[in-house]
Amino acid sequence: MAAAAAAGAGPEMVRGQVFDVGPRYTNLSYIGEGAYGMVCSAYDNVNKVRVAIKKISPFEHQTYCQRTLREIKILLRFRHENIIGINDIIRAPTIEQMKDVYIVQDLMETDLYKLLKTQHLSNDHICYFLYQILRGLKYIHSANVLHRDLKPSNLLLNTTCDLKICDFGLARVADPDHDHTGFLTEYVATRWYRAPEIMLNSKGYTKSIDIWSVGCILAEMLSNRPIFPGKHYLDQLNHILGILGSPSQEDLNCIINLKARNYLLSLPHKNKVPWNRLFPNADSKALDLLDKMLTFNPHKRIEVEQALAHPYLEQYYDPSDEPIAEAPFKFDMELDDLPKEKLKELIFEETARFQPGYRS
């Protein structure tokens, strides 16, 4: 834990890192770190609560700039109880001085990944967590956004079992017609939660990839272990087919990539493993919904509104309290091709509203 900075004593240090967030945020305490930044909790002297502050230093890398800009653009436009918001952003007053960006968010005690390492969940908890994931996802999908990296560590939890989806750095506007060349190379989302079509096709992607990830998360809540822990690309596919069985001819016809289709045709026939054999203690309604989410063919996979209306979630289902976005989200430009200098300018502009004396 960093010592509390005395008023006016300059930035606090946390594990050798400068955290320049005073005077409003003090009493910093280390939480963890990701690929390009550290997260601390801090005391907000204005709202009198502890908050989470993520320090991001992305400006050396085009990919990190892209992810940072995506996350900020999306989260500043989203407003939903099951999606983490941005409360404040701290950065230098000029673009030349801006080396880091500090993002202030609600402090959540833990995440689903940490929880599943230590606790076996009751059916009631599984049901409530799944409902909140789908409630947040309904809003995301209504904005025409794909999260693309749903996994237990991106689901934040607090002691009252509130759940918030975080990390929109890989999110995209849904565009089933656009052929994202190089899709697989830039697709760094965790393999275990990846839909089979991501490994088999490169053309376009749809909201059904997020539903697949939610199915993987439900299976993990039922058993405290990942359902498809593939060691590499082909191993991942083999794990999936080992449980779902061989795809039907109709399902194979959806695979545009001939090499991928021929690979699947070359494999020995596998039978589907019954879900109640894998999860003998699970609620039968939970397994019915799991089956509809972990469907090989993305066109037959359940959609988020149908999933919310499934009998497993009937005690929570309330369409009048499951809000959607006001308007579909649009990125003005494809960020993939922009140089990091341009992305830095866009991050600077996007964060201006939090600067003292800002006038829109």
Rank of each mutant, 00 (worst) to 15 (best):
R191I: 04
E314R: 04
M98G: 14
V46T: 11
A7N: 08
K231F: 08
P23V: 04
P274W: 01
F296M: 05
E109L: 07
K73R: 02
H80F: 04
N45D: 08
D291P: 03
L244G: 06
D175R: 10
L69Y: 02
A7Q: 13
E326Y: 03
R191N: 08
A42V: 09
P280S: 09
M293F: 06
G215Q: 07
V214K: 06
A143F: 02
T185V: 00
F183A: 01
N144M: 10
H125D: 12
F279Q: 12
I217E: 08
K330L: 08
R277A: 12
P339R: 09
Y36C: 15
N253I: 15
S284A: 09
M221K: 14
P328F: 07
L252F: 03
A35I: 07
F348W: 05
D251K: 01
D100S: 11
Y131N: 15
D332M: 09
P23H: 14
Q62L: 15
G136L: 05
Y187H: 09
I133A: 00
Q119N: 12
T26D: 09
P280A: 06
D44R: 11
R148Y: 06
I347M: 15
D251L: 06
L287A: 03
D175Y: 14
I103F: 14
K207P: 09
Y358S: 11
R148G: 09
V39R: 03
D177I: 07
A174E: 12
C216S: 14
L107V: 09
H269S: 05
N47Q: 14
Q132E: 14
R301H: 01
K164C: 07
I217W: 05
N297P: 03
K272Q: 10
G357D: 15
D111N: 11
S360F: 11
G215D: 06
H147S: 09
P176S: 10
L157R: 07
L222P: 07
R67D: 04
A4N: 06
K342E: 00
L252I: 09
A143S: 12
G230F: 05
T94C: 06
A42M: 04
L287T: 09
D167N: 15
H61G: 10
L121I: 11
P339K: 13
Y128C: 13
K48D: 13
E71F: 00
S202H: 10
E96P: 06
Y25G: 00
H299R: 08
M293D: 06
Q249G: 03
Q97G: 07
D337E: 15
R191P: 07
E197Q: 06
R261H: 05
I227N: 13
Y43V: 11
L241R: 00
R359K: 13
S122K: 05
E345L: 07
C161T: 01
K272H: 03
L264C: 04
K138I: 14
E12C: 11
D336I: 10
L134M: 15
V173N: 02
Y36K: 12
R135S: 13
K330G: 07
T206D: 03
D162L: 02
T160P: 10
L244K: 02
Y64V: 15
A7P: 13
K114N: 15
I140K: 08
E314P: 04
H147F: 01
N123C: 07
E305D: 15
L112S: 04
S248N: 07
L134V: 13
L234I: 07
F354S: 00
H80N: 11
V145F: 03
V49I: 13
K151A: 02
L287H: 07
E350M: 03
Q236I: 01
G10D: 12
L121N: 02
A260E: 07
V173T: 09
C40W: 12
V46W: 12
L146K: 06
V18A: 07
D149S: 03
I324C: 01
L234T: 09
G16N: 02
D283E: 15
L112T: 07
G10I: 11
Q119C: 04
N276Y: 13
E345R: 06
L170R: 04
A143N: 10
A42Q: 11
I243N: 12
L343A: 12
R70N: 01
A307C: 03
N271V: 12
I347G: 12
A52N: 05
T118P: 14
D321T: 00
F331G: 00
L346D: 12
I53C: 01
P247I: 07
Y131P: 04
P11A: 13
S122W: 08
L338W: 01
G10F: 11
K342H: 08
D100G: 05
K73T: 08
Y64M: 15
H269W: 10
F183G: 06
S142G: 02
T190C: 05
A171H: 01
P319G: 14
Q315C: 01
L313I: 13
Y233K: 08
G22E: 13
D235E: 14
T26K: 05
P280F: 11
I209Q: 11
N238P: 09
A42F: 12
K151Q: 14
H141D: 06
Q17L: 13
L308V: 10
S320A: 05
A7L: 06
L264S: 00
H147W: 07
Q62M: 13
D175A: 15
D100Q: 12
I227M: 08
P311F: 01
K99E: 03
D318G: 00
D124C: 04
E350D: 15
L130A: 07
G182T: 09
P226K: 01
C166M: 01
V18D: 15
Q62H: 15
I256A: 09
L313D: 04
S246M: 07
M38P: 15
Q97L: 15
H232N: 11
I255N: 14
S208A: 14
